[in-house]
């Protein structure tokens, strides 16, 4: 805000309450407070505890956006309570504000959740440097600025969990590592000193790996440190191909299939892509394909439209390709 004048407005807070020790079900408590333009969400949490109900519980520590303890959801948006200005929240959502823990399913007491799944997956991504570095080196292990840039700010992650609990896949596939663990994996995979062989294989496993990412960009949107986890996930995909770790499976063929199709038609051949990706497993798509065919939604191979100036596209594929699979 350009003005220094402190303004005040009335805000209605609907606050998630739950105590696993005594409650069967969560409930919401309403508080109406005058909020000043100077306050952040954490100030509101503090005031609920200090002025209204001393039993109200939440995590807080550094108050400087470094420790990652105070991440909660405001009107469904994950955020760091100590960093998020109330003025911005009111601009975003108006005067009816709902405060909830990052995951209501994992609530232990009010805003406090059991973050065990997050830490388990984070640990599984080998989030540390694996390197043969002399314990008593005679000089520093220097990393050039150019090499350090490869980390692409992935080292700024504070493990707040905002992206993890905003990720729709984490919610559905309990094995999925989640965006924060992938960002951590990228941070060390992109470190020139690291020589771990297993990490990239682990994050490419079908059960838990990057290929289940739905590309919704929820993680990029919520990250309070602007780490852009989905960008790191994309880079892990690319690394898997470049370092020969990518397995020949439906997910990798699906990515490579685009190239084949574009080379042939300029456009994507939808049916051809499914066939290329699935191989013999294409039979499982036949019922839906038949329904689509009846409605005029399937173009036969001999009628596949092609882009004009296809020769240009083919020439560019030849000269600009940087990966082989």
């Amino acid at each position: 805000m350009s003005t220094n004048k402190i303004s005040t407005q009335k805000v209605n807070f609907k606050v998630f309450r739950f105590n696993a020790d005594v409650d069967y079900l969560p409930y919401y408590e309403n508080y109406t407070m005058d909020v000043t333009s100077e306050e952040v969400v954490l100030d509101v949490l503090n005031r609920i505890k200090w002025d209204h109900d001393g039993s109200f519980s939440y995590r807080r520590s550094c108050r400087h956006g470094i420790c990652g303890a105070c991440a909660i959801k405001v009107n469904g948006r994950s955020t760091l309570a100590c960093k998020e200005s109330m003025t911005t929240m009111v601009e975003y959502f108006g005067n009816e504000i709902t405060l909830e823990p990052l995951s209501t399913k994992r609530a232990v007491k009010d805003m406090i959740i059991d973050k065990g799944d997050f830490w388990e997956k984070h640990a599984a991504a080998t989030p540390y440097l694996v390197a043969d570095i002399d314990e008593c080196p005679s000089c520093e292990n220097l990393v050039s600025p150019h090499d350090a840039e490869e980390l692409d700010e992935a080292d700024l992650c504070i493990q707040c969990g905002a992206c993890h609990y905003a990720c729709p896949v984490v919610e559905i596939n309990s094995d999925f590592f989640g965006p924060a663990a992938f960002a951590a994996a990228y941070r060390f995979e992109s470190d020139v000193r690291d020589n771990d062989k297993q990490r990239l294989i682990d994050v490419n496993e079908e059960k838990q790996g990057v290929w289940d990412c739905v590309k919704c960009f929820e993680c990029a949107e919520v990250c309070p440190k602007d780490i852009n986890p989905i960008d790191k996930i994309t880079k892990l995909h690319q690394m898997a191909f470049k370092r020969g770790v990518a397995k020949n499976n439906v997910a990798t063929r699906h990515a490579v299939g685009f190239l084949h199709s574009i080379k042939k038609h300029g456009m994507l051949d939808e049916g051809g892509l499914v066939l290329y990706s699935e191989g013999a497993h294409i039979v499982k798509h036949i019922p839906v394909a038949l329904q689509m065919f009846r409605k005029g939604k399937i173009v036969m191979p001999w009628n596949m439209p092609k882009s004009d100036n296809l020769d240009e596209i083919q020439k560019l594929i030849k000269s600009s390709s940087t990966v082989k699979f």
Binding site: H237, Q238, G266, I313, L316, T322
Partner: peptide, 26 residues
């Protein structure tokens, strides 16, 4: 734009980032 190619649908991007940039820039 009848000359346009597929955008890569965020999957070509997983495979070959530079190529997808070139095709989309085209």
């Amino acid at each position: 734009l009848t000359e346009a190619s597929c955008c890569g649908a965020s999957h070509l991007q997983d495979y070959d980032d530079f190529l997808s940039l070139v095709l989309n820039a085209r």
